[in-house]
Design a binder for these strands. Structure first.
Lengths: 179, 179
DNA sequence: ATTCCCATGTAATTAGTTACATGATTCG
DNA sequence: CGAATCATGTAACTAATTACATGGGAAT
């Protein structure tokens, strides 16, 4: 499972509580790996038992106590091991594609509505990624070595959203619908 | 769950045995929805109980008997209902992105190897899609109405593979690696 | 002789989702 | 006063993967 590894990466970048991680999995990491807080707490528990991470209780005033997790030496080893592993092809599941294929048996207008909604999502994500790109990497030609990975992931996001947008436009045009 | 609906689409296009479906989920449908034969048989059983599909036993000589499944009236209703449903955003999980993000803590050469392997996969799929496109839709300007959905799905595949390829090239260039 | 294709499943396990649960503080 | 944020979980369920299981025929 790669959720463990996504968590290890995130903790290697900076220690965090389960709650913090859940927020990261809603934003930065969440851009390429989604996870709910329930799932995160469950996996964190298992990872602590495996000594990939260790928790320290931090008391706070005015706020609930929290358990801050840090990656351990074992965790770093596991992350390096994972990094050296061949990457299986990604499993894609496109519900929109199922609905397109179902067009002859379904509701054309409703599918158009789904595509329009998807188009808006792509536009929003693209705007968000573009802004992040300008803010964090103003000079695309000279990205610091230690941020190369994050930059490349962001680039992947931008490319994917642009493509998604282009696909939506092709679909809408082919179905004779306005944007 | 949309596996049910992917099966319904496939059976609406043409009745099939579980084995046939498994092969379709390795090729055409499998291009946007993956499923193993075990999963397919299990879901088919449930769908038969729900009367979304019905099976008829076909005896063959020289080959094992097979159960050919056909979509029922209820199945068609369910498919139409599904088609009219809003489509939730796709949950993306990119193990390659996790590994890119893990670059500072991992094995750079191994990640380059993963990207090269991924690049080959994209090239192969793109070649396969392009060939399908030319074979089944030689005139892209005049795709028959009843094949519009399939054509658009294929277009989505082509766009996605082209983008994946471009991303791999960006990564390899940024990491100073040859293709 | 061995492997591939046809054909259908069960069993065990892991991963992920949805629903439920609690409780303090801060902001409008 | 109500909603949002911070903070952590359990329980029940659904979906998916991996391993196991069988057996005939056709091709190399």
């Amino acid at each position: 499972m790669a959720l463990e590894h996504a968590i290890l990466v995130s903790l290697a970048e900076r220690s965090a509580s389960g709650y913090d991680l859940a927020r990261r999995f809603d934003a930065s990491i969440g851009n390429f790996w989604k996870a709910s807080h329930q799932q995160i707490y469950k996996v964190l528990g298992r990872m602590e038992a495996q000594q990939l991470v260790e928790a320290s209780l931090v008391e706070q005033d005015g706020r609930p106590d929290k358990k801050v997790y840090a990656i351990t030496a074992d965790g770093r080893l596991e992350l390096a091991r994972f990094s050296a592993t061949p990457t299986p092809p990604e499993v894609l599941r496109s519900e929109l594609a199922v609905k397109l294929r179902a067009l002859p048996f379904g509701d054309r207008d409703a599918v158009v509505a789904s595509v329009r909604a998807r188009r808006v999502q792509h536009e929003e994500k693209l705007a968000y990624y573009s802004e992040s790109s300008q803010r964090f990497y103003p000079d695309a030609e000279h990205v610091p070595q230690d941020q190369l990975g994050s930059w490349l992931v962001l680039r992947g996001g931008i490319l994917a959203e642009e493509t998604g947008l282009a696909w939506c436009d092709e679909i809408l045009q082919a179905l004779g619908a306005e944007r």
